[in-house]
Computed example of a mutant assay.
Amino acid sequence: MTTQAESRPAAASGTFALGGDLPVHRLGYGAMQITGPGVWGDPKDPDEAVRLLRRAVELGITFIDTADSYGPFVSETLIRQALRPYAEDLVIATKGGLTRPGPGDWLPVGRPEYLRQQLELSLRHLGVDRIDLYQLHRIDPKVPLADQLGELALLQKEGKIRHIGVSEVNRAQLEQARKIVDIVSVQNLYNLANRSAEDVLDYAEANDIAFIPWFPMATGELARPGGPLDTFARDDASPSQLALAWLLRRSPVIVPIPGTSSVAHLEENTAAATIELTDDEFAALSAVSSPAPEKTGGRRFRLPKLTRG
């Protein structure tokens, strides 16, 4: 008999309620990689991208994060093609505020009229009347933050946005944003190897704000052959799965969104939700991620065999 953990492993990651009223399984999917090189244009195999998105939902993923700038609009359009009509428990989050001059280029634009235009386009491309979570992709330093978030607040009052989030902000900016509008999520670079946003995460946890780490598996030197994550890996837990399991254990407000264009990698990533780190395992991983290798004396750290829930 196939258990729920086997058929819908994302459910094992637990649940977080965005804004207190929009529950999602904590292990989600980031849809940036279902585009062409440089996050530009169509993917090499659009049919495979559609298959991947449908497989994500089959695996129990109920939170998919995208942005108008992915493609641009390619990711949103593929999500509509693959998943509409959307399951009742599926939350599609998107972002606006970065324009794309070309492949690999990203430019913040936070003018209120631009944000309104992009929100309207996202509604059309996703095929919805309201965006459940709309995030300011970057703060435009040329436009007052009150104007940028104020426009999103107006769109929220118009019923076109349910909840509002921000991306790549420091703690002071997050505090400032919350004085303008209710912020339910923050999306920052954060992973086992790069925890520069630790203070933002702590603030988010203290205020019940979802913390969505992008690039959650960028483990760098930790996953190199002979490195800590490589050393800790076992037959039932790869380095990338350990990195995701650590994030899920790190804080109950963390909602990781590992991205991939491969169904096999998607299944591997989602299986990380079933890995339970003990207190000792979590402490050991946390300890080796911070010091530089020379400060550890070059010694190798070991963990007991990891277990699955």
Rank of each mutant, 00 (worst) to 15 (best):
I79G: 08
T94G: 00
D45T: 13
T231V: 03
L18F: 09
G102S: 10
T35V: 05
W106I: 09
R234M: 07
L121M: 05
T94S: 00
I257W: 12
N188C: 06
G227P: 00
P101D: 14
I79T: 08
Q135R: 02
L248E: 13
G30Y: 10
D199W: 03
A264C: 04
A67S: 15
K160F: 07
I257G: 10
G297Q: 12
A206Q: 14
L121G: 02
I161S: 09
R308V: 02
I92M: 01
R299M: 07
R54T: 03
L78C: 12
V255D: 07
A93V: 01
A292S: 12
L244I: 13
K179P: 03
E48A: 15
G36P: 08
D68L: 04
R171I: 12
A82R: 06
E205Y: 05
T274L: 08
D280W: 08
P43F: 02
M1R: 11
M32P: 00
D199R: 13
N188G: 07
G104V: 10
G36W: 08
F211M: 10
F73Y: 15
A283R: 15
D140W: 01
L229F: 10
A264T: 15
I79V: 11
T296D: 05
W40I: 01
T35M: 06
D89C: 04
S262E: 09
E281T: 10
L152D: 08
V50P: 01
S286D: 15
L201I: 09
R111E: 15
Q176P: 03
I64K: 07
P72K: 06
P144G: 11
G20M: 05
T99L: 14
I209W: 00
S122G: 00
P9K: 11
R80P: 07
R8P: 05
S238T: 15
A67V: 10
T307C: 03
K44W: 02
P291A: 06
W106M: 11
A31N: 03
Q241G: 08
S261G: 05
I183M: 04
I275D: 07
Q241L: 08
T307V: 15
